[in-house]
Nucleic acid binder design. Structure first.
Lengths: 137, 137
DNA sequence: GTCTGTGCAAATTGTTTGCACGCAA
DNA sequence: TTGCGTGCAAACAATTTGCACAGAC
């Protein structure tokens, strides 16, 4: 454990993450928390996110649209990712890559510790407004 | 098709990509080609990679260690990704997420067009030198 | 009082872009 | 000759970091 002391901002970031399933980026967390903590700084968000990641409290889903996205649900689970608006949804599939860790270790000679399964496409909203670039943002 | 004219550099980038299974980044492509084409510029590598991507000639595997990695093999297939040295290996598993597109579309209301399956861990080399930070780069 | 956490701004790093020139057609 | 392709350098954008001060213990 690296973190030692209590901090209101850190607490707020962690709570915000655990209360949403939007898999937010640092930027999104900052925007949402800034009104409640006017003196919050983006650097603090980044520093705490890295702290959480080191402690295993959050996991990184990947980088989309240039921004790293975080997930409070650290159990491996598949995602749906919209390639247009970068919305990320959790999926509940009777499907796991975990069964194959041993196969992969045998094939590569390495050790497998986690997985990442994602389906890419257009989300419901983007399918509806397909072609309407204005909705992409 | 956006590209129109022949270009030696573009040809070289595409050939380099199709000749390797290292899933290189723009930076890595540049470093490898620079000795052969001393007046090659990094901007050209990026511009051509984006062109290839638009044309569907290459696919992006993801962003690791801050760098986007490209794959000439555009057929969906699982990868092993070393979280320490960011080596990327192709896997040949009797395993596919493609069967689940319909499930995911039903669950999300969106449309699925591709997938991404990756196993994360330490590659053989990094397992051997575990703890030896010097080898990570 | 000590040491961690933060704001702020500067620094870093990967990627994109504007412009003038080179080269393919 | 037309216009895409490129080198170069500046512009951008996400993330990291140094420093002095604020707050937890």
């Amino acid at each position: 454990m690296v973190q030692r002391k209590y901090s209101k901002k850190r607490q707020a970031i962690l709570e915000m993450l655990s209360a949403t399933d939007a898999h937010p980026s640092a930027e999104q967390i900052y925007s949402e928390l800034k009104p409640l903590y006017p003196d919050l700084s983006l650097g603090t968000v980044y520093r705490n996110l890295n702290l959480f990641r080191e402690n295993g409290d959050v996991v990184c889903v990947g980088t989309f649209g240039g921004q790293e996205r975080f997930d409070w649900n650290t159990a491996p689970h598949p995602h749906f990712i919209c390639t247009r608006c970068h919305r990320i949804l959790d999926l509940d599939l009777s499907f796991s890559a975990t069964d194959h860790y041993a196969d992969v270790e045998k094939a590569t000679g390495g050790s497998v510790s986690s997985e990442s399964v994602a389906f890419l496409g257009l989300c419901e909203q983007c399918v509806r407004s397909a072609g309407n670039i204005a909705d992409a943002k």
